[in-house]
Design a protein around this nucleic acid. Structure first.
Lengths: 223, 223
DNA sequence: ACAAAAGTGTTTAGATTACACCCATGA
DNA sequence: TCATGGGTGTAATCTAAACACTTTTGT
C-alpha cells in the first residue's frame, strides 16, 4: 500500500455497446445523456466500476439495469484512456459489447432510462469516443460471427435459415448467396431441423431450425 | 465533478507482454518482482498509469524504460479487474503486448531492471494473473501473424524465407511445409528478393528478402 | 561426385463461387 | 396454373496439403 500510494487513482467506467437484431437490422441501445457535460447528447449505456466488483461484473450490472437481462453474451472490446476524453474529469473507460435478444428485453427498463434502439445504419453522433467503441465492437461481432453461430444470442430459439441469413447480412452489411449460405451453415452440423414451418413469409413455408443443444457451444464455422 | 465524486477511484496499471525472437524461440521479458507482495516472483514489466498519460503512453513509457526502444509495435490485450487480483490493493490492470527486435534492444537497461529473456516454451510461474495475460497475448500474436507479416517487428530488416518460417514455427508451435510456406508468403507479393545470400546456414546459400517499403503496411495474408 | 540445404513443380483433395434449376403452395 | 419464395444440384474456380524432384556449392 505504501508503495502504491505514490501513484494516482482514476475513475474507471464501463461503457456497453448493447446490440440487438430487429426488423432485419442490427440495433444499438443509446440514450440521451442525463447529466453534464454533454447532457442530452447520445451516449452508450455506462457506469462506474465500484470497489467490490470487477469490470465484467459492472458491465453485467449495467446491462441488467438497462435491459433487465442477465447471463447474456458480454465481452471486452478495448480500453479508452486518453486523459481528456471526458472533459469533466479523468475517466478511464473499459468498453464492452453485449448481444441480446430484443424480443426478451424489458421495455419498461429501457423506457425508464430514456433509451432507444437505433439502427446502426443510421447512427447519430455520439459523445466522447463512443463512436469508436461502437466501431470496434462491430468488428468484434463480425469476427465472432465468422467462427461461431450468432443465432443463439440474437435470434429466438427457432429460426429459419432465411432469417439467419438476413441476420448475417445485417452484421456484415452485404448480401450472401442464399444457396451457398444455407449449405455452409448446414455443413457444420450444429443446426437441427424442426418439423415446424414458418408460413408467415411465403406460401411454401420455411422450416425452422434450432441449435443442437448438446453441442451448442462447440460451434465452429467461417463465412 | 460533483456527479462523479460519489464513485470510487482505482489504481490503474499497465502490464506489458514484451515478446522477442532469438535462437528460433519466442522469448518473453520477465523480471523478479522487486517489492512486496510476491517480491522475488516472476512478473511482467509493468507500472502505473499517471495523470498526464494515456494507458498506451504508459505502456510505451515502460517499454522504453526497460528496453530502450521507442515506436515499436504495441497493442492492447485485455483488461484485468478482479477486485482481489493484487492482494496489496485494488489495481485494475490493462495488459499490452509488444513485439520487439531483441537484436536492437538495450541490454544495459534490461540488466538494470534485473530482467531476463525467457523462452515461452519454458516459462516459470508468474504472479497474479500474468500467466493469463501472456496467454491472451500469444493468441493475439498468432492472429496478427495470420493476417500480416510479423517479420518486420521480430526479425532484422533482411531475412531469408527459412528464417521467416522458423519464426512462424516458433509463433504457432508447429512446423510448416517448407515449399508450401515459401509459396504462400511469396504469393502475397509483399516481399522483395535481394541479390545477397545468407551463406551461414548452407553451401548453396539462401537469398535474403525484405518487406517492400512502399506497401509495408498493407500486407495481408493468412496461414 | 556427393551430401545437404535451397528452391521448384505436380498431384490431389477440399472449399468457394456463381448460377441454373426444381419444389410446394395459396390465390 | 402461375407467381413466389424455399430449397437443391452442378460446373468452374481457387486454395491448401503432401510430397517428389531439381538446383547449387563446398568439400
Amino acid at each position: 500500500m505504501e508503495l502504491y500510494k505514490i501513484h494516482p487513482q482514476h475513475y474507471v467506467a464501463v461503457d456497453c455497446v448493447i446490440l440487438g437484431y430487429q426488423d432485419e437490422e442490427i440495433k444499438l441501445l443509446l440514450y440521451p445523456r442525463s447529466f453534464e457535460p454533454y447532457k442530452g447528447n447520445w451516449s452508450l449505456l455506462g457506469g462506474f466500476v465500484q470497489d467490490n466488483e470487477s469490470a465484467d461484473e459492472a458491465a453485467a450490472r449495467i446491462l441488467k439495469q438497462t435491459t433487465g437481462l442477465e447471463q447474456i453474451f458480454l465481452e471486452q472490446v478495448a480500453s479508452f484512456s486518453e486523459p481528456n476524453r471526458d472533459p469533466e474529469a479523468r475517466v478511464i473507460s473499459l468498453a464492452y459489447y453485449a448481444l441480446i435478444r430484443i424480443d426478451l428485453h424489458d421495455e419498461e427498463k429501457v423506457r425508464e432510462n430514456g433509451a432507444y434502439w437505433i439502427s446502426i445504419k443510421n447512427l447519430p453522433k455520439l459523445i466522447f469516443d463512443h463512436q469508436e467503441m461502437f466501431g470496434k465492437a462491430l468488428v468484434k461481432l463480425q469476427q465472432k460471427a465468422g467462427y461461431s453461430l450468432c443465432g443463439s444470442e440474437l435470434l429466438p430459439e427457432m429460426f429459419t435459415l432465411i432469417q439467419l441469413r438476413k441476420l448475417y447480412e445485417a452484421i456484415f452489411q452485404h448480401e450472401f448467396d442464399p444457396g451457398n449460405f444455407r449449405k455452409k451453415i448446414l455443413s457444420h452440423g450444429v443446426l437441427e431441423k424442426l418439423s415446424i414451418k414458418d408460413v408467415s413469409e411465403s406460401r411454401k413455408g420455411a422450416f425452422y431450425y434450432r441449435i443442437k443443444t448438446d453441442q451448442a457451444e462447440k460451434t465452429s464455422k467461417e463465412l
